[in-house]
Amino acid sequence: MQSHSSQGSAHASGKEVAGSEFLAFTLGSEEYGIDILKVQEIRGYEAVTRIANAPEFIKGVINLRGIIIPVIDMRIKFKLGTPVYDQFTVVIILNISGRVMGMVVDSVSDVTTLMPDQVKAAPEMGTAFNSDYLVGLGTIDERMLILVDIDKLMSSGEMGLIENLAT
């Protein structure tokens, strides 16, 4: 009953009815989506400068127009096999609460608009992402996007290490 009332209020206030845009990217065989508003730009993968004693998932830092930003390899972070860097590998430059950081992914496919009724709650299952970081599952025809709350993920405790590296 409560879900109907909250859904009704969302429609009444005009929020989310227009749908939300997500940038779709792949890690291994899974397709993920993050809020397009968090994405600053998408760049091809380039060599990074390693930082001594940084966790393995932090590839290093790059100089982005005079700003030193940390780069996280999501495949290493979520133990999705050995990363391969090829012509499809990209770095998604994110702006999370005023902090700029890069996220290495296998490839980026498109920007997708999902209506509220296309987003389902994520079941408890063994995905690479802790369910705390999942928004839900977006479905478009036969396609399914695992929607990630990139704000929560990048501001989680272990990612706090990144702040120390960038300063």
Rank of each mutant, 00 (worst) to 15 (best):
E46F: 12
E46G: 15
A47N: 11
V48C: 02
V48K: 01
I51W: 05
I51Q: 09
I51T: 03
I51F: 02
N53E: 05
N53G: 11
A54H: 02
P55L: 09
E56T: 06
E56W: 03
F57R: 01
F57Y: 08
F57W: 10
K59R: 06
V61S: 10
V61P: 05
I62M: 02
I62S: 07
N63S: 03
L64Q: 00
I67Y: 07
I68W: 01
I69T: 00
I69M: 00
P70A: 13
P70C: 08
V71T: 11
I72P: 02
D73T: 06
D73Y: 12
M74Y: 03
R75G: 00
T82M: 07
T82E: 08
T82Q: 08
P83G: 06
V84C: 12
V84Q: 10
Y85N: 03
Y85S: 14
T89E: 00
V91G: 07
V91T: 10
I92C: 03
N95R: 09
V100I: 08
V100E: 07
M101N: 14
G102F: 12
G102Q: 15
M103N: 11
M103A: 07
V104I: 14
V105T: 03
V111R: 11
T112Q: 14
T113W: 02
L114F: 14
M115W: 04
P116N: 15
D117K: 14
D117R: 15
Q118M: 06
Q118T: 01
V119Q: 15
V119R: 07
A121Y: 00
A121E: 01
A122Y: 15
A122P: 04
